[in-house]
């Protein structure tokens, strides 16, 4: 029993040491801001970086209902088919991104800032194992 317990304690110490080493050696994971949305259904196929949509930035300036009721954005990543031609026509993002309320659609670089290869989805910490469909 004593030997067994000693062995298990030793194993615990080794495991702890490995854990400390692992935390020390690898940089902490980088996290998007809660509720950042990456939009890449078409972007990279069209030769531009994915879009990163920051919910936090927009909700300081607009209530949810402006985009999700008035402008018609469905509350599900991937459910909105937004083309640049729609935006230029003043629909979806283009309702504000028109050089009057916010920068216009010719400022490609300000929205298409995502890391190449990122799939569409909602990012950010505090995940709980779900929601699976985001």
């Amino acid at each position: 029993m004593t030997i067994c317990r000693g062995f298990r304690q030793g194993a615990n110490v080794v495991a702890l040491a490995l854990l400390v080493l692992a935390i020390g050696c690898f940089a902490l994971p980088a996290w998007a801001e809660y509720a950042d949305v990456v939009l890449n259904k078409r972007a990279e196929k069209e030769g531009v970086r994915p879009v990163v949509f920051p919910h936090w930035f927009h909700r300081i300036r607009f209530r949810c209902k402006v985009c999700h009721a008035e402008l018609g954005f469905k509350m599900r990543v991937g459910a909105n088919d937004v083309l640049m031609s729609d935006i230029i026509d003043g629909k979806f993002c283009g309702a504000c991104h028109n050089n009057e309320i916010a920068w216009g659609p010719e400022r490609c670089d300000l929205c298409h800032t995502g890391k190449p290869g990122l799939p569409s989805g909602i990012y950010g910490g505090h995940e709980t194992g779900g929601p699976g469909r985001w």
């Binding site: 994971p29 980088a30 996290w31 998007a32 801001e33 950042d36 990456v38 970086r49 990163v52 920051p54 936090w56 930035f57 400022r107 670089d109 300000l110 929205c111 298409h112 800032t113 995502g114 890391k115 190449p116 990122l118 990012y123």
Partner: peptide, 22 residues
């Protein structure tokens, strides 16, 4: 986190340094 370190923004994208930081 600064945008350029958050894992979703490309630090090489020219627009990143112009955006407001969280």
């Amino acid at each position: 986190l600064p945008l350029e370190d958050d894992g979703v923004h490309d630090p090489l994208a020219p627009g990143v340094r112009l955006l407001q930081q969280p």
